[in-house]
Amino acid sequence: MKGISRRRFLAASVIGGAATTLTMSKKAMGAGTFEGYPEGMGVLVDLTRCVGCRSCEAACNKEQKLPEPAMPFDDPSVFDQTGHGGQKRRPDENAYTVVNRYDPPGANHPLFRKLQCNHCNEPACLTSCFVSAYTKTREGAVVYNEKVCVGCRNCMIACPFQIPAYSYSSAFDPVIKKCIFCYDTRLKYGKPPACVEACPQGVLTFGHRKELIKIGQDRIKARPDRYVDHIYGETEVGGTGWMYLSGVPFEQAGFDTTLGKEPIISNVKEFLSTVPMVLAIWPALFTGFHLLARKKGHADEDHSHESQEDEKS
């Protein structure tokens, strides 16, 4: 394990702050841009096809062995449910994916949108985790190791899509709960996640992320009247594994269109890059100040009490 030498190294540097320099510069270098694994899989979600049947929710519940829902999955009244502060439903510890209804202005039929982890190329949750509980797998899934999670919930702060949920009601084993792309049971073996297989409408297209972008572009090109000319997730926050096509402007379907193309970690890099500088410059700078200040006339005094101590004992 690569951690061993570093662990020893860190243990040695507990007292001396300066020794931490090397670790920190590793950190800053580790923060390079990552384009995603070339063979990473993804899902293209075509919102124009979704009819809100919630088969995906039901399939997810079964596959991930989630607790019984409050209402049957065919009960459309959940679409009128609002949570705290008038919010639409969001994934939580009992449901890794939810479908919400939107009524875009001017449209004669409602629009449904499936929410789940978007499996970012450069996940904010992963980069914010101080115990490295998250992994972006080669297959494209962002998975989570609950055995090391301390429960700081920084990943929930960092996720731009507000996906990770926490089992707050658990006293002794609260953990993060989120969609894992059915990694353990399906994706690992090349199979599509349960929701994709369950979808009757072909809303969800599973494939290599690169291929999905081409498919999305082709659909837009073939039916420019049907689609907004944008694949949400192609570039958002550095690109996501799950991407969306929509017939209405994305903000009308509840998407945050202000996220920009940079991965979330880019916002933190400015600070991370100052860390090795502070570690390198401060010791000399302040020791220098100390020496200067002593020369100004306190030199002998500074020593006086030490010598007194020695005399006394």
């Binding site: 607790p67 019984e68 829902p69 049957p72 999955f73 065919d74 949570g83 705290h84 510890e93 707050y168």
Partner: peptide
């Protein structure tokens, strides 16, 4: 069974999670 409907419908309030 998959949709938790009909005979498999949840007892009301059984799965009320955290707000």
């Amino acid at each position: 069974a998959l949709f938790r409907a009909g005979a498999y419908a949840p007892e009301s309030g059984a799965a009320a999670g955290h707000h």
